[in-house]
Amino acid sequence: MDEQSAIRSAQNGNTEALRLLFEHNRQKIFSLAYQYVKNVEDAEDILQETFIKAYRFLNKFNPQNGMRFSPWLYRIGINCSIDYLRRNKKRKDTDPDTESLDKVSSSDLTSDPEQTSQHKELQEKIDLTLNRLSGRQKMIFILKHYQELTTAEIAEYMNCSEGSVKRQLFRAVATVKKNLRGLIMENNYEMQKV
């Protein structure tokens, strides 16, 4: 079954067709959610929420209007991620144990201890810095830096102008640069010339 047929079937209430759409798009949505919340369970929750919402609003999706399913779903995923983090920010802020456990990864047990420690420190610093950004700024930064979208694509997904995306991105990068300065200088990252 191709995507168009699957969408039409899902619109008629066929959950098997929805499963097909889920299998085709789950990795992309989950990856975005994970980059955003840095927690597997939360990213799974976002993934589920995205598909439940998409199914409920599937009747509004009309490919004849030039809409494409994947970007449409991605946009729902972006909104679900921002909402999810906003809803759960308080809980996370008051539960430090959850956060510290989330940081433990399998790489900690296999790599060189000194390198792992440096890498972990850098990762923590980056996460801390990104968490200081507003929800939209953080999302724009992730879409640009990690998902490698163009500013035009981000503007389309975030329903704003390219200028607005650039302004938010400049602010986000400026904050990251400011917060990582000490750590980068300390680790003697090589200065490069043009």
Binding site: E44, Q48, I126, I184, Q192
Partner: peptide
């Protein structure tokens, strides 16, 4: 030069998303 270093650090710290429990999600 500094911005390039920051981007390099960000790339180094980039973490691939682990596998999710797809069946549970579905």
């Amino acid at each position: 030069a500094y911005t390039k270093d920051v981007f390099k650090a960000l790339d180094n710290a980039k973490e691939e998303a682990p596998d999710a429990d797809w069946e549970k999600c579905w």
